[in-house]
Amino acid sequence: MAKIVGGICTSHVPAIGRAIAGNLQEDPYWKPFFDGFPPVRKWLDEVKPDVAVVIYNDHGLNFFLDKMPTFAVGAAEQYFNADEGWGIPTLPPYSGDTGMSWHVINQLVEKEFDLTTCQEMLVDHAFSLPLKLLWPDSPTCPVRTVPVCINTVQYPLPSAKRCFKLGKALGEAIASWDDDVRVVIVGTGGLSHQLDGERAGFVNRDFDLAFMESLINDPEWATQYSNEEIVEKTGTQGVELLMWLATRAALGGSVRKVHSNYHIPISNTAAGLIVMEPKG
């Protein structure tokens, strides 16, 4: 049976792509961010995942407002990164795992999550950059992937409570896959940031740190909030913490914190990173 080895949540700012392309890892502005990742890579070397299930939000590469799925799951043999309009380098294609994708889709729909399934799906920086941060030295991503996309573009967005339930069902679906594969859940987005409006530049360290702590000790804590409340506390794009919540829920019962990092700012964003492992 498939085994979930753990979950990694990280921010996914496009500027990270520019910093990687420019080899700015040791630059004083970037170093506190990039220094968070070597312990994650060491952990990945130990747990050796075969598949990454990546929970992220699309920023207008694959989906437009003409058709905006609340939850979309990829079921392709390959996923392509592409031009997003602002000039960060396009990364090589990602291998899919259609067997696991369709198993997850079947299980989630059975559990009353009405998904959109995608046999073709472009994956944007929110998918590609975190994988590049986890496996920087490999020209192509060394694990197979299953993309899970949550709408954070057009309201109504699914609630924190609903995303937690999705994550829980996703974890159960993966664990019931009859194949001996090791799976890491990768959740990307957040933490607090706001790109648009007169409040642009808003970040909230206290809330972010409380949220990160809650993932370990009180995982459903953030589900008390509506999305509007989350926006108020974390900024318009801070609502991307929904991906973190779904990732945590996929890990089930109790977890151990393997590693974390938190740094303000990367571009307009409070950058968070956490690695969690199921206990027992």
Binding site: A15, G60, L65, G87, Q154, L195, D196, A200, S267
Partner: peptide, 19 residues
């Protein structure tokens, strides 16, 4: 929507900190 407007900003050579 800022996610789409960011692509317009890209044409102008502006990033989200310019915005």
């Amino acid at each position: 929507n800022v996610y789409y407007l960011a692509k317009f900003a890209g044409i102008l050579g502006l990033d989200v900190q310019d915005l």
